[in-house]
Design a protein around this nucleic acid. Structure first.
Lengths: 180, 180
DNA sequence: TCTTGATATGCAACAAGTTGCATTTAATGT
DNA sequence: ACATTAAATGCAACTTGTTGCATATCAAGA
């Protein structure tokens, strides 16, 4: 249900195609939602059939058509009711922690590769958050109240990522000491 | 795939029934994995059919049978190969952050209810982590190296939860100021 | 006594997300 | 000249997770 809501949120700000949404998920919405193109296209199509979105097909000579989706009044109603109803707790599912639980069976080289690659992912994530911050929230004090809210989420995203990074470094350090 | 691995991990430590696993997910594994009883029962059954687990049906007079699952050598092989292969990044999906993106459309009372209930969930989570720590890791310095690893994950879980709590309080505070 | 909650298991239908495949055009790099 | 990447869309099959329902026993509390 949340994918729908996120699609409505971004299309309400600005109408666009499936591909446009995919790009937004990769850039300005990177810390909010990620989905594959298949999922996006399928959901947009379904939402159009359910009247939450309307679609203008823009023909382009010698190129495949662009399908530009717009939110409808039904879509707005759906979004408002989604906003009004509480989310309910998200289940904890951490395969990495599971691996830590069987540390003794986890081969050292696989462990190091895993943690190094995770560290890398987190640093890239940090960079992308930083990029979003520079692009949209360079002077937080002069933001309108409703612009401050998304800025806060970015702040939390950064803090959580930093907490992870610090922890990984501690674990790697302890592992190095244990070997020596 | 990760649910399978988690089931193998806990059943390798100690054989048990679906219900047993459900209890472990609610207590000692609360910061690692959570799943509903339906999911657990179905997956255990499937894994038995695929020879990753064996099952002893223990009849109990006047009570429904207990199905005790044990890991097989194939199950161990599966687990080892899961441990050896890297996890790949988990997609970011945060419906709460999405709500923050449309702050201006998010009714104030729904917002407060949402944040208060999340705060509550996080504090309960913190308590359950604390309970796990007291029960299993009361003296971290005297733990064996492979016992320290799961303790580390608990530490990270606590830190992440605390980061969330601090952030929520900041947001609530700013919101109160904005109203006054 | 009656109800609630814990123990213990399961089916069926559905929703959400992944993986693999497939197409066309244009631009850019080797 | 050839290969790759980006732009742009989609289908089909599969896996994973949720929701609603259903069953039976036992203990404890109102």
């Amino acid at each position: 249900m949340s994918l729908r809501a996120v699609l409505l949120i971004t299309l309400q700000r600005e109408p666009g195609t499936g591909y446009d949404v995919l790009q937004r998920f990769r850039t300005g919405l990177a810390h909010v939602w990620q989905a594959s193109h298949q999922q996006i296209y399928r959901e947009l199509d379904k939402m159009q059939r359910e009247q939450l979105l309307s679609c203008q097909t823009v023909a382009q000579y010698d190129k495949p058509d662009r399908k530009v989706y717009h939110i409808t009044s039904e879509g707005i109603a759906f979004l408002e009711s989604w906003l009004a109803s509480p989310l309910g707790p998200q289940p904890v599912r951490s395969p990495l922690f599971a691996k830590f639980f069987v540390w003794e069976r986890w081969p050292a080289d696989a462990r190091h590769a895993e943690l190094a690659s995770l560290r890398n992912t987190l640093e890239e994530r940090m960079d992308s958050y930083q990029a979003i911050e520079s692009a949209w929230f360079s002077s937080p004090d002069s933001l309108h109240p409703h612009e401050r809210a998304p800025w806060h989420t970015l702040l939390l995203g950064k803090r959580l990522t930093q907490t992870w990074l610090a922890w990984i470094d501690e674990v790697l350090e302890e592992d190095r000491e244990a070997i020596s």
